[in-house]
Design a protein around this nucleic acid. Structure first.
Lengths: 202, 202, 202, 202
DNA sequence: GGATAAACGAGACGGTACGTCCAGTCTTGCC
DNA sequence: GGCAAGACTGGACGTACCGTCTCGTTTATCC
């Protein structure tokens, strides 16, 4: 039990005010200057914090931004459960892509994915703390459909997240086309074709 | 005719030796140190060129690496033309993914895609000079199949490159799983299901 | 009272060790390579300091050298007060020219005077922090003689420093002849002829 | 006889047009940007000459400027011969200091004297081709006076040029005071006091 | 309530790479 | 062979941040 923090240590405690000021500064600076213009010194200056305080709590500026994104922009997407795979999938995509239509969020996500390629350590954290979680959420959906017998035989379950997130990220990173309803339609068409209900035909 | 360059300009001409030394150095250093460890100064030092010479001909180190990749690693993938869409697609994927199985090429591509997110100008060049060309090649294939009546009605033609390159890049950038034959099978299953020939069955 | 510094500012304080290492390096490098071979990068490398640290505290390499000269070579010349103008003048010249007989000091002074011509800002500082102070010291001597009635009517007081420092610097910069005792004799002959004591003859 | 150039060498001859364009450019650029802003590249660009042409005919930019000064500003000072030392000296000083009242000439001279300290080779040329010649001119005057018995016993002949040029250069380099008539008066008072004619006393 | 401990803002420190400037040299093709 | 054009290696510039390290101060717990 005792999940309570129990910070029974002596000494001054972490300042929540500093934490928020730093995350806010990081988020704003990214929006204003782009991730390339984001620096630890800049965050420290804008937030009024010392550089040491930032280095004490985050391993890199990308981690600060990832934290800021999770704190400032609510990245939580609920896992729908309507009892119908196609409907669940639709709701999940709708909610996910809605996030990806807010410009500051887009910019931050692109930057974080980029940084994940350049910094091995951050890459690991990004994949575990962000990418994997999105796949897990989708997996829950798929799992439920499979248990229900509601899952189309094709494509293979393993391919589903690759198709969903692959197409989404490719738009974000490569074509820069908006994550619009056409994309949802295409994905639904690929993963859960409507027509004669997939389940039917007894 | 006379398409020969005829560089009748005065002044010393660009040194091909320097150009190659720079590209070689960039390629090697990326392989040895990773893109994060690649610096203009490092390229200059290893190649024996002056920094000015690099800045004179390339706008950024990412452009040097892109050029090096095109020159050192042959990125050219022929457009197959077997008369059968499924076969063409298979050959195209096979050749494309073969590139993506060579570690230095993988590392460089990941870094370039990352850099394209961080540097607006390079991003534009990368999309035009690299990403768009890959899509164009695939488009030729699809176009020919359509003319032949060989193209499945689903998915929509516009989605084909997004599926192919989306899944491929997602593996490179996010899951880091190898670009193996399973991926090809999945893609073929999605885009050109085999079984009873799509065209046939009169 | 309490004129003690009390550097109650927050933040790390200036490192005296760095300061001395930089001045020492500057002085040595000038002696070894000449002023033309003195570079900020060289000073940083030899002293083990970062370039930024040098730029933080000195506006130019000439200022570093001037500071080094004042610190390493003691440029201080006491103002003699024997009660006799001719004797005071002699002692002052003797001490001043002694400095100008040490080769590293000569080289540095020539370089600083040169730099003062090429860099307007440094020129101002050099005149105020060095040249003017030498003139002031001489002026004290002259002033005391005048009050005593010990000052020859010719040349005019205003011309005295111009004669003393003009001839001295001209030797340093133009003829490169040593600052020997003949120069002192000539100057004494011009400014305070011996023979029948100027004051005496009742 | 044949003092004519006899440039019987093959190949194209030196272009006088280029030479003048280079000297003009050097002179103008020094006036506009100061000597610190004078570069070989700048001279080449403004004059329309190639850098190679400049390097072919002058050892350094200081030599170009010295040449420009001699060509563009007439530095020639006639040696007066009135039969009276004091008068000769007055005329010589008047003509010499007149040169030093033209701002571009002052700036150039200060820069050249500075460069002579920093560049050993140029320093040698500057002393021989410029400084020594001024001393020689004055020496002629003094020589004639001595032969005439017109020379005051003090100061010693050797010191005369040191006093004249020392005080002049000190004003140029150190105090920056104008080379006005007071300076001439002071110099005359030191070197050839008027009062009862020095020659007289039958 | 005094000692101890940790986090805090501030800011100097040694480093590394940046992108620029200019030096002085080396081709080119023209005159 | 001189000339303008211009690319070449090389080296220093002054700047920007990095990540680390004191400082003096503030806030907490412990004895």
């Amino acid at each position: 039990m005792s999940d309570q923090p129990v910070p029974a240590r002596p000494g001054r405690h972490r300042s929540e005010a500093s934490r928020m000021a730093i995350l806010t500064a990081a988020y704003e600076l990214t929006a204003e200057l782009g991730y390339a213009g984001l620096t630890i010194e800049g965050i420290a200056a804008r937030s009024g914090a010392g550089k040491q305080t930032i280095y004490r709590w985050w391993p890199s500026k990308a981690d600060v931004l990832l934290d800021a994104l999770a704190t400032k922009a609510d990245l939580y997407v609920p896992i729908p459960d309507t009892g119908v795979y196609r409907q669940d999938l639709h709701d999940f995509l709708e909610a996910s892509l809605a996030l990806g239509r807010r410009q500051p969020v887009i910019d931050a996500l692109r930057a974080l994915m980029a940084q994940a390629q350049l910094d091995e350590d951050f890459g690991r954290r990004f994949r575990e703390k962000f990418l994997q979680r999105r796949r897990d959420a989708l997996a829950v959906l798929v799992e439920r459909a499979r248990d229900r017998g509601d899952l189309p035989p094709s494509p293979p379950a393993k391919a589903i997240p690759e198709i969903v997130f692959g197409m989404t990220w490719y738009r974000l990173l490569a074509t820069r086309e908006p994550l619009d309803s056409h994309l949802i339609d295409t994905l639904l068409g690929l993963l859960a074709p409507a027509g004669p209900d997939t389940r039917s035909t007894p």
